[in-house]
Design a protein around this nucleic acid. Structure first.
Lengths: 137, 137
DNA sequence: CCTCATTAGTTAGTTAGGGAAACTAATTAT
DNA sequence: ATAATTAGTTTCCCTAACTAACTAATGAGG
């Protein structure tokens, strides 16, 4: 099989097993991957509006609204209105920051385990190539 | 950021844009990525039972049942009962094989475009690393 | 200042894909 | 012959996604 086909095949083949394991890991915090991914974003990049989150995540705003609503229910994020009273700025709550740290540890451990035996160079090649492909999408 | 984090971040970031483009490309054949992925499997590996398909795809059998049902409705696959009358063997229909070829061409073109500028070695590294990670999942 | 267009977010309704539990029918083992 | 197992289906539910239509706030042009 041509190398580009191998690449995309392996890419797709890995997705469901990976997400399932991740969801299993998140389940004890009542989180799903989609919700976690928003927490991760606002941890890394700081407070963000619903619109910004949607852009970063490549989803429509209604999807973000609902995920953020769940995170509010869980007490992991809080919202404040901006100067422009239409926008809602989402950030981690104190509880959310605590949970973030705990989950982050678990995920680190999980991901480290998966990358054992893969050299630093190879990891960087994979990260760079995937980023390069993303940029064309 | 540590290299393993970069790897998994880029992996996740690429998923939705990639699947969306793929679905857009498949839409003219009334196919979705999940359905296509079954056609791809039985093209590569030959006729397969519902159970085998579920194993390969890492999904539960009810999911496969439904996807295969759609493919039958579309006329792209057909089923015949095995010696064991419980099993249903799924294979591409004549129409399905024709459509497979057409779609394959489009996807090849799409994937080739995305992998332009990525060297053969790099492609193989990515494929191998992703496969290695999959094997641990 | 009004009016009107635009923007941010929400609501309502739909869809695809997935899973668990309970089922039927066929097969295998005791 | 009966019991256990297996293959696939049905039913019912969930998550994550979308579009279309909405509300409320802002901003621009007259």
């Amino acid at each position: 099989m041509e190398s580009y086909k191998q690449l995309f095949n392996e890419y797709i083949a890995m997705y469901r097993p990976y997400i399932n394991k991740l969801n299993a890991l998140l389940a004890s915090y009542n989180l799903t991957t989609a919700q976690w991914s928003i927490m991760f974003l606002i941890f890394r990049e700081g407070a963000k509006t619903i619109g910004d989150i949607s852009l970063y995540q490549n989803v429509e705003k209604p999807t973000t609204t609902k995920l953020v609503q769940k995170l509010i229910d869980l007490g992991y994020v809080e919202i404040h209105v901006g100067n422009d009273k239409r926008v809602k700025i989402v950030q981690l709550s104190e509880e959310g920051a605590k949970v973030y740290g705990q989950v982050r540890e678990k995920i680190d451990h999980f991901q480290k385990g998966l990358s054992e035996g893969i050299s630093e160079e190879e990891r960087l090649v994979v990260a760079r190539v995937l980023k390069e492909i993303s940029s064309k999408l």
